[in-house]
Simulated assay, not measured.
Amino acid sequence: MKNTTEKILELTTIEQWKKAFPIMKQLRTDLEEETYLALLNEMRKDGYRLFALISGDNIVSLAGLSFRVNFYSKRHVFIYDLVTDASSRSYGYGETLLNYIHQWSKENGAEYVALESGVQRIDAHRFYEEKLSYDKWCYSFRKTL
Rank of each mutant, 00 (worst) to 15 (best):
A52C: 08
A52H: 01
L53A: 07
L53P: 03
I54S: 10
I54M: 12
I54C: 11
I54Q: 09
S55G: 15
S55V: 04
G56R: 01
D57E: 15
D57P: 00
D57V: 12
D57S: 15
N58T: 09
N58K: 13
I59T: 04
I59L: 12
I59D: 00
I59W: 01
I59N: 03
I59R: 00
V60F: 04
S61I: 06
A63G: 10
A63P: 02
G64P: 07
G64Y: 04
G64S: 10
L65E: 03
S66H: 15
F67T: 09
F67K: 13
N70K: 11
N70Y: 07
N70C: 12
F71K: 06
Y72L: 14
Y72D: 08
S73E: 09
S73W: 05
S73G: 05
K74W: 03
R75I: 07
H76E: 02
H76D: 04
V77E: 05
V77M: 09
V77I: 15
F78W: 13
F78C: 11
I79Y: 05
Y80M: 08
Y80E: 15
D81P: 06
L82R: 03
L82Y: 03
V83A: 05
T84R: 07
T84L: 10
D85P: 01
D85R: 00
D85H: 14
D85L: 05
A86R: 10
A86G: 04
S87M: 04
S87A: 15
S87K: 11
S87W: 04
S88W: 02
S88T: 03
S90V: 07
Y91N: 10
Y91V: 07
Y93V: 03
Y93N: 06
Y93F: 10
G94W: 05
G94D: 02
E95Q: 14
T96M: 14
L97N: 01
L97T: 05
L98K: 04
L98E: 01
I101L: 15
H102E: 11
H102N: 09
Q103A: 14
Q103N: 15
Q103H: 12
Q103D: 11
W104M: 13
W104I: 02
W104L: 12
W104H: 13
S105K: 02
K106G: 07
K106T: 05
K106P: 04
E107K: 08
E107P: 02
E107M: 11
N108T: 02
A110I: 01
E111D: 08
E111P: 02
E111R: 07
V113M: 10
V113Q: 03
A114H: 06
A114N: 15
A114E: 14
E116V: 11
E116I: 13
E116L: 11
S117G: 01
S117D: 02
S117E: 01
S117M: 06
G118D: 13
Q120A: 14
Q120L: 12
Q120S: 14
R121T: 00
R121N: 13
R121F: 05
I122W: 06
I122C: 08
D123Y: 05
D123R: 09
A124R: 01
A124D: 07
A124W: 03
H125I: 09
H125F: 10
R126V: 14
F127C: 14
F127A: 12
F127Y: 09
F127R: 00
Y128C: 11
Y128E: 02
Y128H: 05
E129P: 00
E129M: 14
